[in-house]
């Protein structure tokens, strides 16, 4: 049946009704069916009763197809579609705490500047850098900075949106009440 056995990574955008335990329903589906989650982010949209979940996942074509179908089947899910790299923008945020005393501080700041990172905390022995970008950029920066001692690292996982207005989803749901029918999420 397989059109491709090749493993690939895809980013899915899932819009869900903000019902209790919706995130566990999604992540539970992935774990019990053995789908891989590389990263998952979730947050409310402009319409607070709808949450956007972005999942980066990997697998072959059959798995990708099943992910779309099985996720669509969940009652809370309004929409799932792939954020294709050529039509979308992905961003990830990382906070990196590096050991740096006064002699190393300048060098670390210089590296952060190249990647347009911000210094968001300084202590006598450490610096905290905030860096935003697609996962590749974040990876590259972490590789570079690992010449210094990384004390702590926090990554958010991928968030993404499609480019332009083509795939914008408008809320047209009576259940959300009148007067917000043109709100986007």
């Amino acid at each position: 049946m397989s059109t491709s056995e090749v493993k690939q990574t895809k980013v899915f955008q899932i819009l869900v009704d903000n019902n209790p335990s919706v995130l566990s329903r999604i992540s539970g589906l992935f774990s019990r069916r053995g789908y891989n989650i590389e990263s998952i982010t979730a947050g409310v949209t402009a319409e607070p009763r709808i949450t956007r979940i972005t999942i980066a996942t990997s697998g072959d074509d059959d798995i990708m197809e099943q992910i779309e179908k099985q996720v669509s089947k969940l009652v809370d899910v309004r929409d799932i579609h792939e954020l294709k790299p050529e039509e979308s923008v992905y961003r990830e945020l990382a906070m990196i705490k590096v050991r740096a005393d006064s002699t190393q501080r300048e060098n670390v700041i210089a590296l952060a500047n190249i990647f347009r990172g911000n210094i968001i905390d300084v202590s006598a022995e450490s610096l905290m850098i905030e860096i935003t970008g697609n996962s590749g950029k974040v990876d590259a920066f972490i590789r570079l900075i690992s010449g210094y001692e990384i004390l702590e690292l926090a990554r958010t996982g991928v968030a993404g949106l499609g480019r332009g207005t083509k795939n914008v989803i408008y809320v047209d749901d009576m259940r959300l009440g009148a007067g917000i029918s043109d709100r986007t999420c």
């Binding site: 049946m1 197809e65 099943q66 179908k69 089947k73």
Partner: peptide
């Protein structure tokens, strides 16, 4: 071996659940 069923024959799958279609055999 449902994977191979469609190699030698035309497989039509009628189901109310779209996720069943293609799950075990394309």
């Amino acid at each position: 071996d449902p994977d191979r069923i469609s190699e030698s024959k035309v497989l039509v799958h009628i189901d109310v659940d779209p996720a069943e279609i293609g799950k075990n055999a394309g």
